[in-house]
């Protein structure tokens, strides 16, 4: 430290260090730049309604990205969130026709818990790579959903009024979905930074061996984590069906890749041990604004995927450089 105090630190290095210390500020700057570009391209687009709409669409993405953030903190990833969200949404929409909403809710959350449990056991006990494990369970889940669809094809589907209100409603300019999201986000941030479980997630991701040697039951932490992640994904599905209002077998699938990208942009290291949820929320907002921008520029879906892939790669490489610099 003493040598750097004498010699002037190069500007680039100072910027890098600043970004490493306060990752949120460059993210917010990026978000503002994107909004400004949007305003220049389509003057007048940025108004109260647009902001409410953007937040509405960013919330499901932000919750799913929360699943990725928590699993990535342990060095994992959860690619089954899209399938889980789709399953719970589809089951809710079809079961609510004949059942009490509370029963339908419980039925809708069942596959979420089950898939989370299988993921957790596979990753925690059998040590399968999380990516492969969650990809596998998502394939099985999609298969189950297709079989299930046959059995309910006659009964039709409907969206419960409450979910539609929560998903699309706006009160005093604020989307109702914030009623769900704000407590949820506060809970995630609190869990990650203030509770023992949150600290265990960081510890496992930082140095798994050391954590295990200090007496932590690795498989219990991982199993709990993947169950929580799946339940969050299930809740997202219910919120998303209220927003989209058209149950389909690939409802939440397009959110999976952006959710990974949002967590990575938000500063969570895909290698584990570094990151937090606040950055992820801003990452989700950035991606939602970026999607609007790409839609205005009439970029096709393929180009959007390419862009997401490149973002994940470059941001990860950049973080790696910053960490090595220190």
């Amino acid at each position: 430290m003493s040598t750097t105090a004498i010699q002037p630190v190069p500007f680039g290095r100072r910027v890098k260090r600043f970004m490493a210390d306060r990752p949120l500020i460059p993210l917010i700057i990026l978000l503002i730049i994107l909004v400004v570009i949007l305003q220049i391209l389509r003057p007048g687009i940025v108004n109260e309604r647009w902001i409410a709409n953007t937040i509405k669409f960013a919330i499901p993405l932000a919750i799913l990205a929360g699943c990725q953030t928590m699993t990535m903190l342990t060095g994992g990833i959860d690619l089954s969130v899209g399938t889980v969200a789709t399953m719970s949404a589809f089951i809710m929409a079809t079961q609510v026709v004949n059942q009490d909403p509370a029963v339908a809710f419980l039925l809708a959350m069942m596959p979420a818990v089950l898939i989370g449990l299988v993921n957790g056991i596979g990753v925690g006990v059998f040590r399968v790579h999380p990516l492969i494990m969650t990809l596998g369970t998502s394939l099985i889940g999609t298969g189950c959903l297709q079989v299930y669809q046959r059995t309910v094809i006659a009964s039709g589907a409907k969206i419960p009024d409450f979910l539609a209100w929560l998903g699309t409603g706006v009160t005093f300019g604020f989307p109702n979905a914030l009623l769900l999201f704000v407590p949820l986000a506060a809970l995630i941030v609190f869990t990650l930074s203030r509770t023992g479980f949150g600290r265990l997630l960081y510890a496992v991701g930082d140095n798994e061996r050391a954590t295990r040697l200090s007496g932590v039951q690795y498989w219990q932490v991982i199993t709990a984590l993947y169950v929580i992640s799946s339940v969050l994904a299930g809740i997202t599905g219910l919120l998303y069906i209220g927003l989209i209002k058209a149950p389909s077998l690939s409802l939440a699938e397009p959110l999976v890749l952006p959710s990974v990208a949002a967590a990575v942009i938000g500063g969570t290291s895909i290698f584990g041990g570094r990151g937090g949820y606040t950055g992820t929320i801003i990452g989700a907002l950035i991606l939602t604004v970026l999607t609007t921008l790409l839609t205005i520029l009439q970029m096709p879906e393929g180009a959007r995927r390419i862009l997401f892939g490149l973002i994940v790669l470059f941001v990860t490489a950049a973080y790696l450089r910053i960490v090595e610099e220190r």
Binding site: H129, L131, L257, V260, I270, F271, P300, E301, G302, A303, R304, R305, I306, L307, F308, G309, L310, V312, L313, T316, A317, L320
Partner: peptide, 22 residues
């Protein structure tokens, strides 16, 4: 980039998928 293979190929998975759609 020295990024782990699993991350790089995940990113190229997105990119190649997008290219296929294009």
């Amino acid at each position: 980039t020295r990024v782990p293979d699993i991350v790089v190929t995940l990113a190229t998975l997105f990119v190649l998928q997008g290219a296929a759609l294009l």
